[in-house]
Design a binder for these strands. Structure first.
Lengths: 203, 203, 203, 203
DNA sequence: TATGAATGAGTCTTCATTCAT
DNA sequence: CATGAATGAAGACTCATTCAT
């Protein structure tokens, strides 16, 4: 029906599975049941298509987080963070291609789009980090969290936790993944109530 | 000097940066200051080269972990785990290409090598998981750790933590990364001494 | 306003600048501010469009020469020839695309239209040659010209002179082009009053 | 035998006949009995190939004129100019593709190479013009030529004559071309000994 | 070992053209 | 009249690979 949408979806899948260079226009076209040339009615070129996919992804996520934020306005911060964590994991479970694409875009963006992609991703990441930071700050203010670490540091840690956990699911099937992932969050959260902080250095 | 070694190194870099399909033999050859055809004196074909890089990487890591294990035989388990964590992060800092290649290999392995690569990676992961599990088990036995979670679950969590933290460094420059990364470990470890476990479910 | 006319004009420009194959329908369409498909409302296909441009050009010239002929019926033959020469040069100056198109059509006509184009051009040339020949014949009869050369030969020479001079302007900007071009005509005409003819051969 | 040379020759032919865009690499390859990809062992690009052809052409001509200049050092200037004229015509007769390519390059150079081509052609033209101017100057000094026109103007006129005459042969077969072409030169030369100069203006 | 020339398959992209609307 | 979507063929070019040297 909506050809453009279909192209975008298939492109996402192939970019995610085979990388930018490995995902050929013919492949995407064939999957969309259209001619190679047909794609060019909707997208100027391969780069344009890639960026469209990326923008779509970013917009979708941003929209989601904004909605969430409003809906959970009055919840406890633990609840809100847990919710963020769960959502990310669920996405990884239900739409592994999203996470794969996203990671690929960070690790090895298309050579010719390196700069644009990096900037877009960076902006998106900062948006999320700010959201997380805000929650930790609120958690501290509410007395839920007691920790010597800055909220920004916690946000980074949390973000990193989420990425690791998401990837985990894309990369491998392992037994009791639910339990494992929750364990991660749990340990993280419980740690926030511990007292003494170790002091050591990375050389 | 050692041409084969140089090829391997350059191949690693390009596979990491551009993906399997994006890294052309010409590119690798040019960087090595050799002819395209020259590479075929050392490697049967592109797949062969890729596998060689992967094997190299795996062997290097395995060797490292084995050595480490022996050297830290008598250390505390917290020390051993922290050490593992630090080593991984240091690798990501010093040789981001290693982590990039490794992640790429998991997320989008060369289409034609999907199975082989997946198996190799799986084996390597299991090796590491076993090592971690062992440490957690020992930690429990020694009374260092008190937790309702199984050692295997902890190992998975820890592994996931390491991957997330490593990626973090490959993907982005952020301020005070040392502090952030250590915070992650710290929270994780401190959490292992907390009492009650939350009960909630991923839908 | 008149879309068809606009298409023809833009087509002329592009065929002249880029050659038949280099001038794409999209290019012409874009310039006309119409869709590619829109052109097909006016012309059956690219070949049809090309022929239309050519016919237009030929018709325009033929009409001009016929009018000229009548208007200068009573003038001296030197005046009439000089006039022809000037007109051609002026065209080259004011509408270089016309000359460019015309030359391109002769040198490298569209592969698929080679025969048709060649015939049309040939006819047009013959028309002009006849006109010139007639003038030289009249010049001889009137005693203006004294030369051993046949009027046909003179017509060919004159035609060749005109083409060379026209091209000169399309190809290059050079200082004092007016003077130079007139010099050419002048020398040619003065030569017609010289006595002895050299005798030599092209091998 | 010498593949590169063969490619160059075939490229010249096709560029001359079909224009830059009309001459496809496949066509040139097929004619050379090589694969399309094979051409790229010798030339970086289509553009590169085109420039190579152009440079070849220019170099060939330059070399010729320089040799000629030395050999005819002591001849009369009429002889030298006549010789130049004949050589050009002979080239047009024997190698019409050379002239066709040359004219095409001036009228509609490859879009992407417009500037480079124009510069190269301009340089080549100036070289020849200087050569001609020198001869006219010498002719004047030796008393062979008596004319109010500057040597530079004469050189331009002569150059224009040559181009017109060369084209004549490429464009059309006409009877007694030898006679016609020589008539042109003859009239030109004889005109140089005529007395009064007309005065009229191009508007 | 290493190379330069060569190849066939495949890359992205543009082309002229059609057709339902 | 004019368009947007679609197509098959062809465009330039790159790729991994081979082979004689």
């Amino acid at each position: 029906m909506n050809t453009k949408q279909t192209i975008l979806e298939n492109a996402l899948q192939f970019f995610a599975s085979y990388g930018y260079d490995g995902a050929s226009m013919s492949l995407i076209a064939r999957e969309t049941q259209i001619t190679k040339a047909g794609i060019y009615s909707y997208f100027k070129n391969k780069e344009d298509l890639y960026i469209a996919v990326l923008d779509h992804l970013i917009a979708f996520h941003k929209e989601y987080w904004i909605k969430k934020k409003q809906r959970l306005k009055s919840a406890s911060n633990e609840k809100r963070l847990k919710d963020s964590f769960i959502f990310s994991i669920q996405t990884a479970v239900k739409e592994p291609a999203l996470i794969a694409f996203w990671q690929m875009a960070q690790i090895s963006p298309p050579r010719s789009l390196e700069q644009v992609v990096t900037e877009k991703i960076s902006a998106s990441r900062n948006f999320l980090l700010a959201y997380f930071e805000e929650m930790f700050e609120a958690g501290k203010a509410a007395g839920e969290i007691e920790t010597p670490h800055s909220s920004l540091t916690l946000a980074h840690s949390f973000y990193c936790l989420i990425e690791g956990a998401s990837l985990k699911h894309v990369n491998a099937n392992f037994p009791d993944y639910e339990g494992t992932l929750l364990t991660i969050f749990e340990l993280f959260w419980d740690g926030l109530e511990a007292r003494e902080a170790d002091e050591w250095k990375i050389v």
